Amino acid sequence: MVRIVHTNLRAYGFSPDDAGPDIEKTWALLSARAVDEVTGEPPRTQLAIETDEVEMFPRVADGGLIGLAGIPARAFPDLNAPGYDVTFTVRAAGYIPLTQTATIALNLGVIGAFAPTDIGALPLRRAPVVIKGRTVVAGGGPNVPAVGATVQVTGIWPTLPSAAAVVPAAAPNILYLRPGLYFNRDLVNDRVRRRELQRVLGEDKRLLAAVEAGTDTIELSDRVNVVVGSVLAIGAQDPERTEFVTVSAVGGATTADQPARITLAHPLARAHLRDELVIRVVPQAPGADNQLVRETIAGDRCVVLDGLADLAGVGAIEIAGGAALVEYHAIRLYTATSNADGYYRLPPINRAAQLELQADDGVHPNITQIIVPNYAAGEHIVDFVFRAP
Rank of each mutant, 00 (worst) to 15 (best):
T335N: 11
T335D: 05
G321C: 09
G321A: 13
Q354C: 10
N339E: 10
V326P: 04
V326Y: 04
L325R: 06
A336L: 02
A353I: 03
H329E: 10
I331T: 15
A330Y: 00
A353N: 07
A353W: 09
V326M: 02
Y334D: 01
T335F: 00
D341Q: 10
A352W: 12
G322N: 11
I349M: 08
V326W: 03
A320D: 15
P347D: 05
N350A: 09
A352F: 08
L357I: 00
N350S: 14
N339I: 04
L325Q: 13
V326K: 08
L346C: 07
R345G: 08
N339K: 09
V326D: 07
T335W: 03
D341R: 08
A340E: 12
L325W: 04
A330D: 13
A320V: 14
I331M: 15
Y334P: 03
A330P: 01
A352Y: 03
H329D: 06
T335E: 12
A323T: 10
Y334G: 05
R332Y: 09
T335Q: 14
A323C: 04
A324M: 09
A323K: 09
T335A: 13
A353L: 11
L325P: 07
E356S: 15
A330C: 03
A353V: 11
T335P: 02
A336H: 00
D341L: 08
P348G: 12
T335R: 13
P348S: 04
G342Y: 14
R351H: 14
N350F: 05
A330H: 10
Q354N: 07
G342D: 02
G321H: 12
Y334C: 01
A352I: 02
N350E: 09
N339C: 08
P347T: 01
R351A: 12
